[in-house]
Protein backbone atom coordinates (compact mmCIF):
# COMPACT_ATOMS: atom_id res chain seq x y z
CA UNK A 1 0.00 0.00 0.00
CA UNK A 2 1.30 3.45 -0.72
CA UNK A 3 1.52 6.00 2.01
CA UNK A 4 -0.91 8.76 1.41
CA UNK A 5 -0.08 12.27 2.33
CA UNK A 6 -2.58 13.68 4.76
CA UNK A 7 -3.42 17.07 3.41
CA UNK A 8 -5.31 19.71 5.31
CA UNK A 9 -8.95 19.25 4.47
CA UNK A 10 -10.23 22.41 6.00
CA UNK A 11 -9.56 24.16 2.76
CA UNK A 12 -11.81 21.80 0.78
CA UNK A 13 -15.03 23.25 -0.49
CA UNK A 14 -18.09 21.97 -2.28
CA UNK A 15 -16.36 22.73 -5.60
CA UNK A 16 -13.54 20.29 -4.82
CA UNK A 17 -16.05 17.47 -4.99
CA UNK A 18 -17.64 18.47 -8.28
CA UNK A 19 -16.32 16.39 -11.16
CA UNK A 20 -15.90 17.62 -14.71
CA UNK A 21 -18.76 15.44 -15.97
CA UNK A 22 -22.02 17.03 -17.03
CA UNK A 23 -24.87 15.96 -14.76
CA UNK A 24 -27.51 14.21 -16.83
CA UNK A 25 -30.48 13.57 -14.59
CA UNK A 26 -33.89 14.83 -15.71
CA UNK A 27 -34.57 18.45 -14.75
CA UNK A 28 -36.32 18.48 -11.39
CA UNK A 29 -35.05 15.05 -10.34
CA UNK A 30 -34.58 14.62 -6.60
CA UNK A 31 -31.07 13.32 -7.26
CA UNK A 32 -29.80 16.85 -7.84
CA UNK A 33 -30.64 17.82 -4.31
CA UNK A 34 -28.96 14.75 -2.86
CA UNK A 35 -25.82 15.35 -4.93
CA UNK A 36 -25.69 18.97 -3.77
CA UNK A 37 -26.03 17.99 -0.11
CA UNK A 38 -23.40 15.31 -0.47
CA UNK A 39 -20.96 17.77 -2.01
CA UNK A 40 -21.75 20.24 0.73
CA UNK A 41 -21.35 17.76 3.59
CA UNK A 42 -18.14 16.06 2.49
CA UNK A 43 -15.85 19.06 3.06
CA UNK A 44 -17.21 19.27 6.59
CA UNK A 45 -16.23 15.73 7.47
CA UNK A 46 -12.49 16.30 7.61
CA UNK A 47 -11.80 13.32 5.38
CA UNK A 48 -9.18 13.86 2.68
CA UNK A 49 -10.80 13.69 -0.74
CA UNK A 50 -8.58 10.84 -1.90
CA UNK A 51 -9.86 8.68 0.95
CA UNK A 52 -13.43 8.83 -0.31
CA UNK A 53 -14.85 6.26 -2.72
CA UNK A 54 -18.32 6.17 -4.26
CA UNK A 55 -19.52 2.85 -5.63
CA UNK A 56 -22.80 2.34 -7.41
CA UNK A 57 -24.73 -0.26 -9.36
CA UNK A 58 -27.16 0.45 -12.17
CA UNK A 59 -30.05 2.86 -12.29
CA UNK A 60 -30.52 6.61 -12.28
CA UNK A 61 -29.02 6.93 -8.81
CA UNK A 62 -26.01 4.92 -9.87
CA UNK A 63 -24.68 7.71 -12.09
CA UNK A 64 -23.79 9.45 -8.84
CA UNK A 65 -20.07 8.48 -8.72
CA UNK A 66 -19.41 10.08 -12.11
CA UNK A 67 -20.38 13.43 -10.67
CA UNK A 68 -18.23 13.20 -7.56
CA UNK A 69 -14.60 14.20 -7.82
CA UNK A 70 -13.46 11.35 -5.59
CA UNK A 71 -12.48 7.76 -6.32
CA UNK A 72 -15.40 5.86 -7.75
CA UNK A 73 -16.73 2.80 -9.50
CA UNK A 74 -19.92 2.59 -11.51
CA UNK A 75 -20.40 -1.16 -11.29
CA UNK A 76 -23.17 -3.56 -12.26
CA UNK A 77 -26.77 -3.95 -11.28
CA UNK A 78 -27.23 -4.62 -7.59
CA UNK A 79 -23.62 -5.57 -6.88
CA UNK A 80 -22.21 -2.35 -5.46
CA UNK A 81 -22.26 -3.65 -1.85
CA UNK A 82 -20.08 -6.59 -2.91
CA UNK A 83 -17.41 -4.38 -4.43
CA UNK A 84 -17.59 -2.11 -1.41
CA UNK A 85 -17.14 -5.11 0.88
CA UNK A 86 -14.03 -6.30 -0.94
CA UNK A 87 -12.57 -2.82 -0.91
CA UNK A 88 -13.32 -2.32 2.79
CA UNK A 89 -11.61 -5.63 3.59
CA UNK A 90 -8.31 -4.51 2.07
CA UNK A 91 -8.62 -0.74 2.69
CA UNK A 92 -10.46 -0.20 5.97
CA UNK A 93 -9.19 3.37 6.18
CA UNK A 94 -11.39 4.58 3.32
CA UNK A 95 -14.74 6.32 3.53
CA UNK A 96 -16.81 4.16 1.20
CA UNK A 97 -20.26 5.17 -0.03
CA UNK A 98 -22.64 2.94 -1.92
CA UNK A 99 -25.29 4.74 -3.90
CA UNK A 100 -28.21 2.55 -4.87
CA UNK A 101 -31.91 2.67 -5.56
CA UNK A 102 -35.01 0.69 -4.70
CA UNK A 103 -34.60 -1.55 -7.76
CA UNK A 104 -30.81 -1.87 -7.58
CA UNK A 105 -30.65 -2.35 -3.82
CA UNK A 106 -33.83 -4.20 -2.98
CA UNK A 107 -34.62 -6.18 -6.12
CA UNK A 108 -31.64 -7.42 -8.12
CA UNK A 109 -29.19 -6.67 -5.32
CA UNK A 110 -31.41 -7.49 -2.35
CA UNK A 111 -29.30 -10.39 -1.21
CA UNK A 112 -26.07 -8.40 -1.17
CA UNK A 113 -27.70 -5.57 0.76
CA UNK A 114 -28.87 -7.98 3.47
CA UNK A 115 -25.51 -9.63 3.90
CA UNK A 116 -23.59 -6.38 3.86
CA UNK A 117 -25.79 -5.10 6.70
CA UNK A 118 -25.50 -8.32 8.67
CA UNK A 119 -21.70 -8.24 8.42
CA UNK A 120 -21.59 -4.60 9.46
CA UNK A 121 -19.09 -3.71 6.76
CA UNK A 122 -17.89 -0.17 7.41
CA UNK A 123 -19.59 1.54 4.48
CA UNK A 124 -22.46 3.99 3.97
CA UNK A 125 -25.38 2.88 1.85
CA UNK A 126 -27.65 5.55 0.40
CA UNK A 127 -30.79 4.03 -1.03
CA UNK A 128 -32.64 6.51 -3.23
CA UNK A 129 -36.21 5.30 -2.96
CA UNK A 130 -38.51 6.65 -5.67
CA UNK A 131 -40.73 3.55 -5.67
CA UNK A 132 -40.37 3.16 -9.44
CA UNK A 133 -37.94 2.02 -12.12
CA UNK A 134 -36.84 5.25 -13.74
CA UNK A 135 -33.94 4.33 -16.00
CA UNK A 136 -35.95 1.60 -17.72
CA UNK A 137 -38.83 4.05 -18.06
CA UNK A 138 -41.46 3.36 -15.51
CA UNK A 139 -42.01 -0.19 -14.34
CA UNK A 140 -43.00 -0.92 -10.74
CA UNK A 141 -40.25 -1.53 -8.21
CA UNK A 142 -40.13 -3.66 -5.06
CA UNK A 143 -41.11 -0.59 -3.05
CA UNK A 144 -44.02 0.42 -5.30
CA UNK A 145 -47.24 0.43 -3.34
CA UNK A 146 -49.63 -2.47 -3.89
CA UNK A 147 -52.01 -1.57 -6.68
CA UNK A 148 -49.65 0.97 -8.24
CA UNK A 149 -50.44 1.23 -11.96
CA UNK A 150 -47.32 1.37 -14.10
CA UNK A 151 -46.31 0.36 -17.61
CA UNK A 152 -45.68 -3.18 -16.42
CA UNK A 153 -48.68 -3.23 -14.10
CA UNK A 154 -51.53 -1.59 -16.04
CA UNK A 155 -54.06 -3.13 -13.65
CA UNK A 156 -52.02 -2.28 -10.58
CA UNK A 157 -49.25 -4.30 -8.98
CA UNK A 158 -50.26 -7.47 -7.19
CA UNK A 159 -47.12 -7.50 -5.06
CA UNK A 160 -46.61 -6.62 -1.44
CA UNK A 161 -43.95 -3.93 -1.31
CA UNK A 162 -40.79 -3.92 0.74
CA UNK A 163 -40.45 -1.54 3.65
CA UNK A 164 -36.79 -0.76 3.18
CA UNK A 165 -36.12 0.28 6.77
CA UNK A 166 -37.80 -2.85 8.15
CA UNK A 167 -35.63 -4.87 5.79
CA UNK A 168 -32.48 -3.10 6.95
CA UNK A 169 -33.37 -3.59 10.61
CA UNK A 170 -34.26 -7.23 9.99
CA UNK A 171 -30.81 -7.66 8.48
CA UNK A 172 -29.26 -6.43 11.75
CA UNK A 173 -28.42 -2.95 10.45
CA UNK A 174 -26.48 -0.97 13.06
CA UNK A 175 -27.30 2.44 11.58
CA UNK A 176 -30.67 2.89 9.95
CA UNK A 177 -32.07 6.27 8.94
CA UNK A 178 -34.48 8.03 6.62
CA UNK A 179 -34.18 11.41 4.94
CA UNK A 180 -36.08 13.29 2.25
CA UNK A 181 -34.39 14.65 -0.87
CA UNK A 182 -35.74 18.17 -0.59
CA UNK A 183 -35.40 18.57 3.18
CA UNK A 184 -31.83 19.64 2.71
CA UNK A 185 -30.91 20.51 6.25
CA UNK A 186 -32.17 17.28 7.69
CA UNK A 187 -30.63 15.32 4.78
CA UNK A 188 -27.25 16.93 5.41
CA UNK A 189 -27.49 16.01 9.09
CA UNK A 190 -28.33 12.37 8.35
CA UNK A 191 -25.52 12.10 5.79
CA UNK A 192 -23.07 13.46 8.31
CA UNK A 193 -24.20 11.05 10.98
CA UNK A 194 -24.02 8.15 8.49
CA UNK A 195 -20.44 9.10 7.66
CA UNK A 196 -19.51 9.19 11.33
CA UNK A 197 -21.00 5.79 12.11
CA UNK A 198 -18.61 2.84 12.18
CA UNK A 199 -20.20 -0.10 10.45
CA UNK A 200 -22.85 -0.21 7.77
CA UNK A 201 -24.93 2.95 7.66
CA UNK A 202 -28.19 2.54 5.81
CA UNK A 203 -30.03 5.65 4.73
CA UNK A 204 -33.27 5.57 2.80
CA UNK A 205 -33.71 8.84 0.96
CA UNK A 206 -37.26 9.52 -0.19
CA UNK A 207 -36.54 10.74 -3.68
CA UNK A 208 -38.92 12.00 -6.29
CA UNK A 209 -38.81 10.69 -9.84
CA UNK A 210 -40.16 13.71 -11.60
CA UNK A 211 -41.06 11.81 -14.75
CA UNK A 212 -42.45 8.44 -13.73
CA UNK A 213 -43.64 8.87 -10.15
CA UNK A 214 -43.78 12.61 -9.44
CA UNK A 215 -46.32 12.64 -6.60
CA UNK A 216 -45.14 9.67 -4.61
CA UNK A 217 -43.65 11.69 -1.80
CA UNK A 218 -45.97 14.70 -1.85
CA UNK A 219 -47.16 13.95 1.66
CA UNK A 220 -43.68 14.37 3.08
CA UNK A 221 -42.54 17.19 0.78
CA UNK A 222 -45.55 19.50 0.35
CA UNK A 223 -45.27 22.42 2.69
CA UNK A 224 -48.99 22.23 3.44
CA UNK A 225 -49.08 18.72 4.76
CA UNK A 226 -45.58 17.61 5.59
CA UNK A 227 -45.60 18.71 9.21
CA UNK A 228 -48.70 16.66 9.85
CA UNK A 229 -47.47 13.62 7.99
CA UNK A 230 -43.86 13.37 9.14
CA UNK A 231 -42.35 12.71 12.51
CA UNK A 232 -38.88 14.15 13.05
CA UNK A 233 -36.99 11.73 15.26
CA UNK A 234 -34.80 13.25 17.92
CA UNK A 235 -32.89 11.16 20.38
CA UNK A 236 -34.14 11.54 23.94
CA UNK A 237 -37.16 13.56 22.88
CA UNK A 238 -40.83 12.62 23.06
CA UNK A 239 -42.33 11.89 19.66
CA UNK A 240 -44.28 15.02 18.81
CA UNK A 241 -45.36 16.12 15.37
CA UNK A 242 -47.91 18.28 13.58
CA UNK A 243 -47.96 21.81 12.33
CA UNK A 244 -48.88 23.00 15.81
CA UNK A 245 -46.73 20.47 17.70
CA UNK A 246 -49.92 19.11 19.16
CA UNK A 247 -49.80 15.45 18.20
CA UNK A 248 -47.75 12.65 19.61
CA UNK A 249 -47.10 8.93 19.51
CA UNK A 250 -48.13 6.89 22.52
CA UNK A 251 -47.66 3.19 23.08
CA UNK A 252 -50.82 1.23 23.79
CA UNK A 253 -49.77 -2.27 24.72
CA UNK A 254 -47.58 -3.34 21.81
CA UNK A 255 -49.20 -0.89 19.42
CA UNK A 256 -48.36 2.75 18.79
CA UNK A 257 -51.19 5.22 18.53
CA UNK A 258 -51.50 8.85 17.53
CA UNK A 259 -52.77 11.06 20.33
CA UNK A 260 -53.53 14.76 20.64
CA UNK A 261 -51.70 16.63 23.34
CA UNK A 262 -53.82 18.33 25.92
CA UNK A 263 -56.99 17.13 27.57
CA UNK A 264 -55.11 14.81 29.90
CA UNK A 265 -52.37 13.71 27.50
CA UNK A 266 -48.98 15.22 28.20
CA UNK A 267 -45.46 14.78 26.80
CA UNK A 268 -44.80 12.40 29.66
CA UNK A 269 -47.26 9.95 28.12
CA UNK A 270 -45.45 9.87 24.80
CA UNK A 271 -42.88 7.50 23.42
CA UNK A 272 -39.38 8.85 23.79
CA UNK A 273 -36.97 8.17 20.97
CA UNK A 274 -33.81 6.22 21.75
CA UNK A 275 -31.64 5.77 18.69
CA UNK A 276 -28.94 4.02 20.73
CA UNK A 277 -31.21 1.27 22.06
CA UNK A 278 -29.39 -2.04 21.72
CA UNK A 279 -32.69 -3.79 21.10
CA UNK A 280 -34.09 -2.96 17.64
CA UNK A 281 -37.73 -3.28 18.69
CA UNK A 282 -38.41 0.45 18.94
CA UNK A 283 -36.65 1.13 15.65
CA UNK A 284 -38.65 -1.63 14.02
CA UNK A 285 -41.88 -0.27 15.43
CA UNK A 286 -41.03 3.14 13.99
CA UNK A 287 -40.15 1.62 10.63
CA UNK A 288 -43.70 0.24 10.35
CA UNK A 289 -45.27 3.67 10.79
CA UNK A 290 -46.55 5.61 7.79
CA UNK A 291 -49.68 6.65 5.96
CA UNK A 292 -52.59 6.55 6.26
CA UNK A 293 -52.73 6.17 10.05
CA UNK A 294 -49.35 7.41 11.12
CA UNK A 295 -46.84 10.07 10.26
CA UNK A 296 -43.70 8.90 8.42
CA UNK A 297 -40.74 9.01 10.80
CA UNK A 298 -37.70 10.79 9.45
CA UNK A 299 -34.24 10.87 11.02
CA UNK A 300 -32.10 8.28 12.74
CA UNK A 301 -34.00 5.16 13.74
CA UNK A 302 -31.09 3.19 15.09
CA UNK A 303 -27.42 3.84 15.76
CA UNK A 304 -25.55 1.18 17.74
CA UNK A 305 -21.87 0.32 18.00
CA UNK A 306 -20.75 -3.12 16.94
CA UNK A 307 -17.43 -4.37 15.63
CA UNK A 308 -17.08 -3.83 11.90
CA UNK A 309 -16.33 -6.60 9.45
CA UNK A 310 -12.86 -5.37 8.60
CA UNK A 311 -12.01 -4.91 12.29
CA UNK A 312 -12.90 -8.53 12.95
CA UNK A 313 -11.14 -9.72 9.81
CA UNK A 314 -7.94 -7.84 10.61
CA UNK A 315 -8.26 -8.96 14.22
CA UNK A 316 -8.03 -12.57 13.08
CA UNK A 317 -5.07 -11.77 10.83
CA UNK A 318 -3.32 -10.23 13.82
CA UNK A 319 -4.35 -13.05 16.14
CA UNK A 320 -2.99 -15.76 13.86
CA UNK A 321 0.17 -13.74 13.30
CA UNK A 322 0.59 -13.46 17.05
CA UNK A 323 0.08 -17.19 17.51
CA UNK A 324 2.23 -18.43 14.65
CA UNK A 325 4.49 -15.52 13.81
CA UNK A 326 4.55 -13.65 10.53
CA UNK A 327 4.09 -16.02 7.62
CA UNK A 328 7.21 -17.79 6.43
CA UNK A 329 6.88 -19.49 3.06
CA UNK A 330 9.78 -21.84 3.75
CA UNK A 331 7.97 -23.21 6.77
CA UNK A 332 4.60 -23.21 5.06
CA UNK A 333 5.81 -25.43 2.25
CA UNK A 334 7.03 -27.94 4.82
CA UNK A 335 3.77 -28.26 6.76
CA UNK A 336 3.33 -31.85 5.55
CA UNK A 337 5.15 -35.15 5.61
CA UNK A 338 8.43 -34.33 3.94
CA UNK A 339 11.28 -36.50 2.74
CA UNK A 340 14.76 -35.75 1.56
CA UNK A 341 16.34 -37.23 -1.53
CA UNK A 342 20.13 -37.16 -1.50
CA UNK A 343 22.48 -37.31 -4.47
CA UNK A 344 23.30 -40.95 -3.81
CA UNK A 345 19.80 -42.37 -3.62
CA UNK A 346 19.30 -45.70 -5.30
CA UNK A 347 16.68 -46.54 -7.88
CA UNK A 348 16.06 -47.44 -11.46
CA UNK A 349 14.55 -44.33 -12.91
CA UNK A 350 14.21 -43.88 -16.58
Amino acid sequence: MTDTVQRPTASLTRKDFVSNQEVRWCPGCGDYSILAQMQKVLPELGIPREKIVFISGIGCSSRFPYYMNTYGIHSIHGRAPTLATGLACVHPDLSIWVVTGDGDGLSIGGNHLLHCLRRNVDINILLFNNRIYGLTKGQYSPTSRPGHKTKSSPMGTIEQSFNSLSVALGAEGTFVARAVDVHTKQLAYVLKRAAEHKGTSFVEICQTCIVFNPHEWDYVTDADVKDDSTLMLEHGQPMIFGKNHDKGIRLNGLKPEVVSLGSGVTEANLLVHDEFAEDPTLAHLLSRMGPPNFPTPVGIFRCVEKPTYSELMLGQVEEMTRQRGAGDLVKLYRQADIWVVNEASEGNGR
Binding site: I55, I73, S75, I76, R79, P81, T82, L83, A84, T85, G86, L87, A88, C89, V90, H91, L94, H112
Partner: peptide, 9 residues
Protein backbone atom coordinates in the same frame (compact mmCIF):
# COMPACT_ATOMS: atom_id res chain seq x y z
CA UNK B 1 -17.78 -8.48 -6.85
CA UNK B 2 -15.72 -8.42 -3.67
CA UNK B 3 -12.67 -9.56 -5.62
CA UNK B 4 -13.11 -6.61 -7.98
CA UNK B 5 -13.40 -4.26 -5.01
CA UNK B 6 -10.28 -5.72 -3.44
CA UNK B 7 -8.38 -5.46 -6.74
CA UNK B 8 -9.42 -1.81 -7.00
CA UNK B 9 -7.94 -1.46 -3.52
Amino acid sequence: GAVIGAAFG
